[in-house]
């Protein structure tokens, strides 16, 4: 191949592929015994938001886009650990566990994925996309009256993500989207265990507003990037890509 053409190709590919700079990762608290917040090339990107806010759609798009640009990705989410996901699902179906128990069960699920998927993947240079993270777990518990300091201690094991996006969608719009998808509202996402209202529709609206308020409070300590999820899938996706490109380029705040 002639030299000029080879260079041109190299430049074209370089245009498309951004090699991320390794960055130092920190834990919120003491972290995981025996694990260092070392310099890793991978990035941890968290997408938070209610059911129906478009999290999974946006994550699916991001995966496509990232892979197209040469980044390997791994996805994690709540209740997906090898260790306790089945048991946790059972517990939720039966509605038999009390608050602290359910909370610790979720923390176990999170820790298992953190140690066995997130940390190794970051070390190996993957972009880890987390469909929800500790903030949802904390917000759910806080709405149920659990102590914020207690939760912060439990989740001191968590790694600080490179970026946290919070997809906000108005509760009224969420209802519409959930109905369009399932024609039903989820028991837990409606906060039915809290007894706001026996009417699921009312309960859903109240619960989502309460969760939204807690997220606003958590925003102060954790600094989420808020993304307006009321727009079209394409618009929201464009917004995500713009901000994630900044993260990949190595600047701290998206």
């Amino acid at each position: 191949m002639e030299r000029g053409r080879a260079l041109r190709i190299k430049r074209q590919v370089e245009d498309r592929i951004v090699v991320p700079r390794p960055s130092h990762h920190r834990f919120y608290g003491h972290g995981i015994p025996g694990v260092d917040g070392e310099k890793v090339a991978g990035k941890l990107i968290v997408v938070e938001g209610a059911d129906g806010s478009g999290r999974s759609t946006q994550i699916a798009r991001l995966v496509e886009w990232l892979e197209g640009n040469g980044h390997a990705t791994v996805q994690v989410g709540l209740k997906r650990s090898t260790l306790v996901s089945e048991e946790l699902e059972q517990a939720k179906q039966g509605n038999i566990l009390s608050r602290t128990t359910l909370s610790l069960f979720y923390a176990t699920d999170f820790a298992d994925q953190l140690e066995n998927i997130i940390l190794p993947a970051l070390k190996a240079g993957f972009i880890v996309l987390a469909d929800r993270y500790i903030y949802t777990l904390m917000a759910r518990d806080m709405v149920r009256g659990m102590d914020e300091a207690w939760l912060k201690n439990v989740y001191g094991i968590a790694l600080e993500p490179d970026a946290v996006f919070y997809l906000t969608v108005s509760p009224e719009e969420l209802v519409q989207r959930n109905f369009a998808k399932n024609a039903t509202l989820d028991y837990w996402e409606s906060g039915m265990d809290l007894g706001f209202s026996r009417d699921m529709f009312d309960s859903f609206l109240q619960y989502q507003r309460a969760i939204g308020k807690v997220f606003q409070r958590l925003q102060a300590s954790y600094g989420f990037t808020i993304i307006d999820g009321n727009g079209s899938v394409d618009d929201v996706s464009a917004e995500f890509k713009k901000r994630i490109a900044v993260v990949l380029a190595g600047r701290q705040h998206a």
């Binding site: 306790v84 610790l104 176990t108």
Partner: peptide
């Protein structure tokens, strides 16, 4: 042998919390 010190601790705390609360 899936447990690390952290998950070992958390899963026993879950067990304890369940017995404690119920």
């Amino acid at each position: 042998e899936l447990l690390s010190p952290t998950t070992f601790s958390l899963i026993h705390a879950t067990d304890f919390a369940d017995r404690y609360e119920r």
